[in-house]
């Protein structure tokens, strides 16, 4: 049985090809404006990488924001359900998931791969990848470096704005008050970690928690989140693809 999962996210589109329950290939590409085109590309890329044709594929399942608009998919499943299935496949003892993506962050409580409860950030960008994107721009630091920069701070600044736009101006005023880049970066990391930690505590996540989504690649954020939650997190080798993996696994039944 060969199945493909496509995760049509707001920032990136992910594809995973699974053969008999095992990952054969995956791909990650920027979504851009035309998310349908990006999803089609991801499908072709993942087929090419695995060396299969469309005819070989039994099912394509979609997930993510664009999931309902992908006409080539057999079924659309929400990314909350697919992340749970994908992470459970990698860590069978997992009880909770923290997913920080491009425009939302979510916390999921799971039991044997099934969702028991979940919580998502409010309508705004607080605690999401967008927050980091905007604030790192104000620091003139590439987003990938923000976490590592934060690790070098001795005196983290306190950032209290939850609103992304106000946080950006807070960064500028901290700069005016003489804080260095490391300290402001550490403040930003702490702020996002606090935001997500509130949601995890609401759901009562305590141990066996996985951290996924694009932001999980950022070591500084990972460290900040572990410090805030006082636990060590499971980080999949490729934390961005667990949604697509879950979709592919649902496709195999």
């Amino acid at each position: 049985m060969i199945t493909v999962g496509i995760d049509s996210g707001s920032a990136t589109t992910k594809g995973v090809l699974v053969s008999n329950g095992k990952i054969v290939a995956h791909t990650i590409l920027p979504t851009g404006f035309d998310f349908i085109l990006a999803a089609k590309k991801a499908y072709i890329e993942v087929l090419d990488a695995a060396g299969f044709d469309k005819e070989d594929v039994d099912h394509v399942y979609s997930t993510g924001y664009g999931r309902k608009n992908l006409t080539f998919a057999d079924k659309a499943i929400s990314e909350i359900t697919t992340h749970a299935a994908g992470v459970y496949d990698l860590y069978p003892d997992v009880k909770g998931i923290i997913d920080i993506g491009g425009q939302d962050s979510k916390v999921i409580s799971i039991s044997k791969g099934k969702v028991i409860d979940f919580s998502m950030n409010d309508k705004c960008a607080a605690g999401t990848g967008k927050f980091l994107e905007y604030t790192s721009r104000a620091l003139e630091v590439p987003i990938e470096d923000l976490g590592n920069l934060a690790l070098g701070s001795k005196n983290p600044a306190s950032i209290t704005s939850m609103c992304t736009v106000f946080a950006e101006s807070e960064v500028i005023s901290l700069r005016a008050r003489g804080f260095n880049k490391e300290d402001i970066a550490a403040g930003l990391v702490e702020s996002i970690a606090r935001r997500v930690a509130v949601m995890s505590r609401q759901l009562g996540l305590q141990e066996n928690v996985a951290f996924v989504g694009g932001v999980a690649k950022n070591t500084g954020i990972r460290a900040g989140l572990e410090k805030e939650l006082k636990i060590s997190l499971y980080i999949p080798p490729e934390p961005q693809i667990t949604g697509a993996l879950g979709a592919a696994l649902y496709g195999s039944g």
Binding site: Y65, I77, S78, E79, I80, T81, D104, K114, V115, I116, D117, F118, S119, M120, D122, K123
Partner: peptide
Amino acid sequence: PMLFVETDYSSADVEQIGIRVDAFMEM
């Protein structure tokens, strides 16, 4: 199980709420 939805009269959050509702139904 309970799903919390906070909203207003605009249609700006239809997709954000939609994903929560989908996940809740799947759950």
